[in-house]
């Protein structure tokens, strides 16, 4: 499961919107995964682990706290944004970074079922089938949730004046 630790951590962060709560979820999910690993008969360990992360997050009381107080925006740990990555012009780089923070805030503000679907697709690059497995949702629902998530995001971005 360790090769999928990054994916698990990212999903936990996007669900919990707070890195401390995300680490709690990650720890708990990995312990559960280790406990039940012997009974894992599937073919896709990543989707299985993401499903455990998601179920752990859903059973956490902290799930729906945090969005107003600590959106992920602006919160960078090691491995966060590297300004130098965005070209030579520091002003453009700063602008781009601000933009990213705003996009992140918009994603973080999506309802949790839309947020998890979008995050699994866009950041974890899961297939529809994998998302359906991880979220225990029919593929048709995955498709309509993705659509709604993207519509909401596009509208919010337009309202914010993002390109």
């Amino acid at each position: 499961m360790l090769p999928h630790l990054d994916a698990a951590y990212n999903l936990a962060r996007w669900l919990m919107r707070d890195s401390e709560a995300a680490e709690d979820v990650l720890q708990e999910a990995m312990v559960r995964a280790l406990t039940y690993f012997a009974s894992f008969k599937g073919v896709n360990p990543r989707a299985w682990l993401l499903q455990i992360v998601r179920n752990t997050a859903y059973s956490s009381h902290a799930l729906n706290r945090g969005v107003e107080t600590v959106p992920l925006a602006g919160e960078h740990e090691e491995g966060g944004i590297d300004l130098a990555d965005h070209g030579d012009d520091p002003e453009a780089a700063l602008l781009r970074t601000r933009e990213q923070c705003r996009v992140r805030t918009l994603v973080a503000a999506l309802p949790v079922e839309l947020r998890e679907t979008l995050v699994l697709r866009e950041f974890e690059e899961c297939s529809y089938k994998e998302i359906a497995d991880a979220t225990q949702t029919p593929i048709g629902t995955v498709m309509s949730r993705l659509w709604r998530a993207r519509q909401l995001l596009a509208r919010a971005a337009a309202a914010e004046g993002l390109p």
Partner: peptide, 25 residues
């Protein structure tokens, strides 16, 4: 529209698990 939304999200950095978190896990 979908292409625009995708471009918006594309710049999002993918954060690896910080070493400290990995060690605790």
């Amino acid at each position: 529209e979908l292409l625009r939304t995708r471009a918006l999200l594309r710049g999002e950095p993918y954060a690896a698990v910080p070493e400290a978190v990995r060690a605790r896990v």
